[in-house]
Every structure is written in structure tokens, then in C-alpha cells.
Simulated scan of single mutants.
Amino acid sequence: GAAEGRKVDLVRRNGWAGFELDTGYRLQGAEAACGYTAAFQSVIGEGPIRVVETAEEKRRGLAAIMRQATCCGDWTFPDAAVDAVCVLRLDAEELSCKEHL
């Protein structure tokens, strides 16, 4: 992401963050408005977060993101792109999962 802005300022100031990942979302209708609900699965976590400083660690992080997104791990990243991007590392220390089907 961007190397400046509110998110990076908060990371540098607080050093702690939370996250949530959802999948399988389906709206489940009902006769009455208050009966509507949603099916989903989620993982929620939190832990220390920091800005990655070295080009080598940035490349490892970017490669991990691309491997997850594309199922391919053979990527190269130009020096200018690595220098321009801000990579954050969050080490999840607490995790919880929820499923509502």
C-alpha cells in the first residue's frame, strides 16, 4: 500500500492491529424483516504489526501475497516498485473463528 497516510500512521503509533476475513456469505431471507440473517464463516485475529523496512523482507511479503492470490510463486519485483510500496507485517497472536450457516 501507500507509504503514508492514516493507516501507516496508526501502525507506527500503535504497533497493534486486528483483522477479519469472511467467506461463504449468503443472505438468508425470512417472512419478517427482523428474521433476515446471513450465513458466513470468519476468522478474526489480532497482534503486533509493523512496517517492513528491508527490500528483501518486502520481496518475501509481496511474493507471499502473490502466491496466495495467483497460486504461483515465481514473481520478480522491480527495485523501483519495492522502494515505492509499503508492506506491513502482522503476526497474529490471537485467533478466533465463527461459522453461522
Rank of each mutant, 00 (worst) to 15 (best):
G47V: 03
G35M: 07
K7E: 05
G24V: 04
E4H: 12
H100C: 09
E4N: 12
R67V: 06
E56H: 10
A39W: 08
W16R: 03
V82T: 11
F19W: 12
M66N: 02
Q41T: 15
A80K: 13
E57L: 08
G73R: 05
V51D: 01
G18V: 02
R26V: 11
G61Y: 02
V11P: 00
R60H: 11
I65V: 15
V8G: 00
Y36M: 07
A81Q: 09
I49L: 07
V87A: 00
L95T: 08
E53C: 05
P48S: 05
A81Y: 13
V82E: 01
H100E: 03
F19R: 07
G29M: 10
G47C: 05
E20D: 11
G1I: 07
G5W: 02
E4V: 10
A39I: 07
G24L: 05
Q68W: 09
G35N: 13
G29D: 09
F19E: 05
C86D: 03
P48D: 08
R59K: 14
L27R: 08
R12H: 12
F19N: 05
C72D: 15
D74A: 14
M66F: 04
S42A: 15
N14R: 06
G73W: 04
R26L: 10
W75V: 07
P78I: 12
L101V: 09
W75E: 04
A39E: 15
E57K: 06
S96N: 06
D9A: 11
G15H: 04
E4Q: 11
V8L: 09
A63M: 06
D22W: 12
F77E: 02
T23S: 13
C71H: 15
D79Q: 11
G29N: 09
I65F: 07
E31Q: 07
G45H: 00
S42P: 01
S96Y: 04
D9N: 13
A69W: 06
T54G: 09
E20R: 08
Y36T: 06
R60I: 06
M66V: 03
A38F: 14
A30H: 14
A63Q: 11
V82Q: 03
D91W: 02
G29V: 07
D91M: 04
L90M: 07
H100A: 10
R26Q: 13
D79F: 13
L10W: 04
V8R: 01
A3L: 09
P78C: 10
E53W: 09
A84H: 09
T76K: 03
I49T: 02
C34E: 08
R13S: 14
Q41A: 14
V43M: 04
A64K: 05
E20C: 15
T37G: 08
L62A: 09
N14D: 15
E99C: 05
N14S: 10
V43F: 02
K98P: 03
C71L: 15
Y25F: 11
E4F: 02
D9Y: 03
W75Y: 09
P78Q: 10
I65R: 06
L101G: 13
A3P: 01
V87P: 00
T37E: 15
A81V: 07
Q28R: 15
Q68M: 12
C72Y: 12
C34T: 08
R6M: 06
T37Q: 06
G73V: 06
L27H: 10
E93Y: 11
D74P: 01
L90I: 08
D9K: 14
R6A: 12
A81P: 01
G61K: 00
F40V: 04
D22L: 14
E93F: 09
A80I: 11
A80L: 08
D91F: 03
E99N: 07
